[in-house]
Amino acid sequence: MVNLFLASVREGTWKSQGWPETWTDYAVSKLALNAYSSVLAKRSQRFGLVVNCFCPGFTRTSMTGGEGTHTAVEAAELATRLALLPTEELPTGKFYISHNNVLRSKL
């Protein structure tokens, strides 16, 4: 999917091929990150390592123009809690998203 998008960008055809016009590059990069994290989770499991993805949700930052449901500090606190969980309490290969400052697994 990433290679298809990059080829479309290089050829200047990404809009005519139906790629969304808003946040497309961001969405495709997140797709690649999540897929690679899943691969790393499978490869690292035998070493006792846990690999997951975390999305802070709609966070008030300059990227969102100051809009959002929570502050960057609140998002960082939630990410820190997730990162500090003991490995035996945390499955690997998951995608976590913050919703109302509560972690939810999406995979």
Rank of each mutant, 00 (worst) to 15 (best):
F47C: 09
N34L: 07
A35F: 11
Y26H: 03
L6Y: 07
L4C: 05
V9P: 04
F54C: 03
S8I: 04
T13G: 01
P56Q: 10
T22A: 07
T59F: 01
V39R: 09
P56R: 05
L6S: 10
F58H: 04
L6M: 10
C53K: 05
A32E: 00
W19G: 08
C53Q: 10
Y36G: 00
Y26A: 03
S8W: 05
T61N: 01
G48Q: 08
P20L: 06
F5Y: 15
F5S: 07
F54N: 04
V28E: 07
L49P: 00
F54L: 14
S38N: 12
G12W: 09
T13Q: 03
F5G: 06
W23H: 11
K42G: 05
F47N: 12
W14K: 08
F58Q: 01
L40D: 03
F47E: 14
F47H: 13
R46M: 08
Q17K: 14
L31M: 13
F5W: 14
A32F: 01
L40C: 13
F58R: 01
W19A: 11
S38D: 11
E11D: 12
T61P: 00
W23Q: 11
W14T: 01
T61S: 05
R43S: 08
V9C: 09
L31A: 13
W19I: 15
K42F: 01
K15R: 14
W23L: 15
T24Y: 01
F47R: 10
T24D: 03
L49M: 14
T24E: 05
L40A: 09
S8N: 14
G18A: 02
W14D: 03
G57W: 11
V50N: 06
R10G: 03
N3F: 04
A7C: 06
S44P: 00
T22G: 00
S8M: 04
L31Q: 06
D25R: 15
F58K: 01
T13E: 03
G57V: 13
L31S: 09
A32R: 01
A35V: 12
L4Q: 12
E21D: 10
G12L: 07
S44D: 07
L6I: 13
V50P: 00
F58I: 05
R10L: 07
T22I: 12
Y26N: 03
L6W: 05
T61W: 07
S38R: 14
Y36M: 09
P20D: 03
S38V: 11
D25G: 15
S8K: 07
V51C: 10
S37N: 14
F58N: 03
G48F: 15
L6N: 08
Y36K: 02
L4P: 00
K42R: 12
S16Q: 11
E11N: 08
Y36Q: 06
N3W: 04
S44I: 12
E21G: 13
C53I: 09
G18N: 04
E11S: 12
A7N: 11
K15Q: 10
C53A: 14
W14G: 04
S44F: 15
P56W: 10
T61D: 02
G48E: 08
S8L: 00
T24W: 00
Y26K: 01
A32P: 04
E11R: 07
V51D: 00
G57N: 06
L4R: 13
Q17S: 07
C55F: 07
C53V: 15
V50S: 10
A7H: 04
C55S: 13
G18I: 13
C53L: 06
K42E: 05
A41P: 03
A35H: 13
W19N: 09
